[in-house]
């Protein structure tokens, strides 16, 4: 079965994975993006300390017509991303333990013609913080050994009285992350 994927950026898929973690009740979400041009790999991973899945649930999640919710839509996010990764000589793997959390890892051949652009990761991070400002988001982006780290737990400790979803703070965050990620590609 071929699913029609309307996502335009990998960062849209990344947001979709973060949404899953938030829905699973995670209080900490670790996001890692790794780009290695010499190894021709682009991979990303979202790990959380949410409710986790048992083996049967992990099997089912690859199926486009299964969702943990009994009502409303079917869960299409993971099958879509897995299909996109496999089309680019990569794959998607879920590791999970009930009560401990879930990690979803995806890889792509970086130079593959069908690989979606990574896109606007800064907006994805801002959307996630707006959703649940008290969740610790740790973002780690590596490009050929250069690294950008954004850790909201640091901001949360600095801000205490002020939730991070204040519009001015969200705007700052977007500019900060955009700038930091852009620098990864300049190599200076």
């Amino acid at each position: 079965m071929k699913l029609s994927n309307k996502m335009r950026e990998l960062s849209h898929h990344l947001l979709d994975l973060i949404e899953n973690s938030l829905a699973a009740g995670a209080s900490t979400i670790k996001i890692t993006v790794i780009e290695d041009t010499s190894g021709d790999i682009l991979g990303f991973e979202v790990g959380d300390n949410g409710g986790g899945l048992n083996e049967e649930e992990i099997e089912q999640i690859y199926d486009p017509f299964v969702t943990s919710r009994r009502l409303r839509r079917v869960g299409l996010g993971i099958p879509l991303l897995q299909q996109a990764a496999r089309a680019c000589e990569g794959d998607l793997i879920i590791r999970s333990e009930k009560g401990k959390g879930t990690t979803v890892k995806t890889t792509f051949r970086r130079s593959h013609i069908d690989r979606m652009p990574l896109g606007d990761v800064a907006s994805t991070l801002v959307a996630a913080v707006a959703a649940k400002p008290d969740v610790n988001l740790l973002y780690n982006h590596l490009v050929d050994g250069r690294e950008f780290i954004f850790d909201t737990s640091w901001l949360i400790s600095k801000f205490r009285e002020l939730p991070l979803n204040d519009v001015k703070v969200l705007s700052w965050m977007k500019g900060f992350c955009r700038e930091g990620i852009k620098k990864l590609y300049r190599g200076d």
């Binding site: 309307k6 996502m7 849209h12 947001l15 979709d16 949404e19 839509r73 959307a127 959703a131």
Partner: peptide, 8 residues
């Protein structure tokens, strides 16, 4: 911001 929303 479900999968459907993100896609749209």
């Amino acid at each position: 911001m479900g999968t459907c929303g993100i896609t749209a």
